[in-house]
């Protein structure tokens, strides 16, 4: 880490806090993936890592490289936007697929389909 020697102390502290917060949130989400009981509860756990977790790591990376190269490094925003837009889509698709499978199996834990539903959905 010799390249980081010229970083000011406040920046090193900020990057440290952001990195540990982000990694800690991601770990909390993964622990939730293990500990929570049903699938529908577990769907909530990874959102910790994909919202604030990766956001903190990206902020740390932006701050670090901007100060290291003394110019604005902003391309981490692309990952942030990508993750922000795609994670809800995948989780929604997965939750819907799971609901569909549970309904076919007649699982008691999920609400039954509404009478107007014909298996055709427009939103997705």
């Amino acid at each position: 880490m010799t390249h980081a020697a010229e970083l000011p102390a406040w920046a090193a502290l900020a990057v440290t806090v952001l990195l540990l917060l982000g990694a800690g949130l991601a770990l909390t989400g993964a622990v939730g993936l293990l500990r929570l009981q049903s699938f529908y509860e577990r769907v909530h756990a990874p959102t910790l890592g994909t919202t604030l977790g990766i956001g903190c790591v990206l902020l740390a990376s932006m701050l670090f490289f901007s100060l290291l190269q003394t110019r604005f490094i902003l391309h981490e925003i692309l990952i942030a936007v990508l993750v922000m837009v795609t994670t809800p889509v995948t989780l929604m698709l997965l939750a819907r697929a799971s609901l569909y499978r549970d309904r076919i199996e007649g699982n008691e834990a999920v609400p039954p389909p509404r009478r107007s539903q014909t298996g055709e959905n427009s939103n997705g």
């Binding site: 990057v15 440290t16 540990l20």
Partner: peptide, 8 residues
Amino acid sequence: SAALLEWA
């Protein structure tokens, strides 16, 4: 700051 970052 380099040592702190390394640990972080």
